[in-house]
């Protein structure tokens, strides 16, 4: 990116915890209702190492959704998992669904 002829380096993003991925254009975690879907990599009773869809990893408080096992998909808000995600519905075919939306699958946050 350049500004006024000078090259400007964009800052690299280093999330301290999950729920932190909050680009302005995608809404804002801090004002409430944004949450990030992650997958459990290393389960734990209080915190679990989780990975988001972009491959970034971090600790998530999982006490509200325990027990968790590797591969569980969680919804994280403010560094804490608040919900489990329904199993992937990739196998649903359009013929099996009476609602257009059900033909889609996946991302849970905005």
């Amino acid at each position: 990116m350049t500004a006024g002829g000078a090259r400007v380096e964009l800052p690299t993003y280093d999330p301290q915890s999950y729920g932190a991925v909050c680009a302005t254009v995608d809404g804002c975690l801090v004002c409430g209702d944004v949450a990030v879907p992650v997958t459990v990599i290393e389960p734990g009773e209080a915190d679990a190492l989780c990975e988001d869809e972009h491959g970034a990893r971090g600790a998530v408080g999982v006490e509200l959704v325990v027990p968790v096992i590797q591969g569980d998909r969680l919804l994280v808000h403010g560094g804490v998992a608040i919900s489990r995600l329904a199993p992937d519905r990739a196998g649903d075919s359009p013929e099996r669904s009476d609602r257009p939306h059900d033909r889609a699958q996946g991302r849970e946050s905005a």
């Binding site: 409430g32 949450a35 808000h77 403010g78």
Partner: peptide, 10 residues
Amino acid sequence: IGFETTAPST
């Protein structure tokens, strides 16, 4: 701050 989404993390 926050509604019931955020209050559990606090």
